[in-house]
Design a protein around this nucleic acid. Structure first.
Length: 271
DNA sequence: AGAGGTACCTGGCAGC
DNA sequence: TGCTGCCAGGTACCTC
């Protein structure tokens, strides 16, 4: 579920609650996530103070003096602060317990998420190393997309979902940004002009910022760290709206699988 | 190098 | 009510 705005919403929710707190223990009830939760996580985190909570793409980074915990929410993960008396549920796989007995609790029914530990700078971790620019950074613009896209015949939708091209864009927001920019999702990435990539970059940024303002998108079960849902689902222009009229031109929206994922678009005003 | 397919795992929902 | 089949927000990894 979580794309960049949901991960960032989570980060903003937990950062003030865990920054400066000391880890007393780590409880791993189910280590079988995307990758096994390493024993080094508990060894490394215990006794450490959380210095900051940062985000790179869809990865959350809990930084300490000894190393960094890397957390990915996968498709169904969520994080919240649990009280000491709060009994864990069946999908509450990992608790990072603080010295006041509250804990940062990872819930992940589908277990596509991950919790890893690195003592090196997180930026050089294999999962983070090849990532493209952050779409909300000032440095991200259409030229970054244009120059990488030359010669690429893959659909622009697949191109934009490649985290080496731009970090953190998932299926929902790619659909939305392409609609806003008037670009057809199946168009070959290498056959889009510099000017249109500039518009696309602007619309990627605007879409993500709007979603952040709304607290993310709750389609099924996304919840922010405080349990509140995201309200961006009501503002989605194309995602999940097959057959409904395009908000711009009233033509019926279509759904089609592109790059193995559902794509929603307007056949009239996306070219 | 790039493109396309597969795999991981489980819940929710539509349709019968 | 219960069963079946389909669908899902991510992404590493494999092959061609």
């Amino acid at each position: 579920m979580p794309e960049l705005p949901e991960v960032e919403t989570t980060r903003r929710g937990i950062a003030p609650l865990v920054t400066g707190r000391r880890v007393a223990s780590v409880v791993v009830r189910e280590p079988r996530l995307r990758w096994p939760v390493p024993a080094a996580l508990a060894r490394g985190l215990t006794g450490q103070v959380i210095r900051s909570v940062e985000r790179r793409a869809k990865y959350l980074l809990l930084r300490t003096a000894a190393g960094t915990a890397i957390i990915h929410l996968g498709m169904s993960g969520s994080l919240r602060l649990a009280a000491a008396a709060d009994a864990p549920g069946a999908y509450d796989h990992v608790d990072i317990v603080f010295d006041d007995a509250t804990s940062l609790r990872l819930r992940d029914p589908r277990r596509f998420g991950a919790v890893l530990w690195t003592t090196k700078p997180a930026e050089v971790h294999p999962l983070l190393q090849g990532l493209g620019p952050e779409p909300l950074d000032g440095a991200f613009d259409g030229d970054a997309l244009y120059s990488r896209s030359r010669g690429r015949r893959a659909p622009v939708k697949a191109f934009l979902m490649d985290s080496r091209v731009v970090a953190g864009l998932g299926n929902i927001y790619v659909n939305e940004a392409l609609h806003r920019a008037g670009v057809h999702p199946a168009r070959a990435a290498g056959r889009i002009s510099r000017a249109r990539y500039a518009a696309l970059a602007r619309n990627i940024r605007a879409t993500l910022e709007d979603a952040l303002t709304a607290g993310g998108t709750t389609l099924r079960d996304f919840r922010a760290a405080d349990g509140s849902p995201g309200y961006f689902a009501q503002r989605l222009r194309v995602y999940g709206r097959e057959g409904e009229p395009c908000m711009r031109c009233r033509a019926p929206l279509r759904r089609r699988v592109i790059a193995q994922r559902s794509s929603f678009y307007c056949p009239r005003c996306q070219r």
